[in-house]
């Protein structure tokens, strides 16, 4: 990745990757980090939208007793 390829979104992705502990990946595979961030953003936007905040997430919590 050359400096010319380094867009603000890539710089942001690399910073967020370092926060997540992906320093080595950010240094050695910046294109992969940028692609991963882009894929996550696409998934977030595809998942966003209608939904009711009070819906119970799946799977629901279930208590159990082992003894």
């Amino acid at each position: 990745m050359t400096p010319a390829d380094t867009t603000p979104s890539t710089i942001d992705a690399l910073a967020r990757a370092r926060q997540a502990g992906l320093d080595t990946a950010a240094a050695e595979f910046p294109e992969d980090v940028a692609a991963a961030a882009q894929a996550a953003a696409q998934a977030q936007s595809a998942c966003a939208g209608v939904g009711t905040p009070t819906d119970e997430p799946w799977p629901p919590m279930r208590a159990r007793t082992s003894s």
């Binding site: 967020r16 990757a17 997540a20 992906l22 990946a25 992969d32 991963a36």
Partner: peptide, 13 residues
């Protein structure tokens, strides 16, 4: 490279 790209995506969620 293919796995790395896919699996790192979770870090951004």
């Amino acid at each position: 490279a293919a796995s790395r790209r896919k699996l790192m995506s979770g870090a951004f969620l």
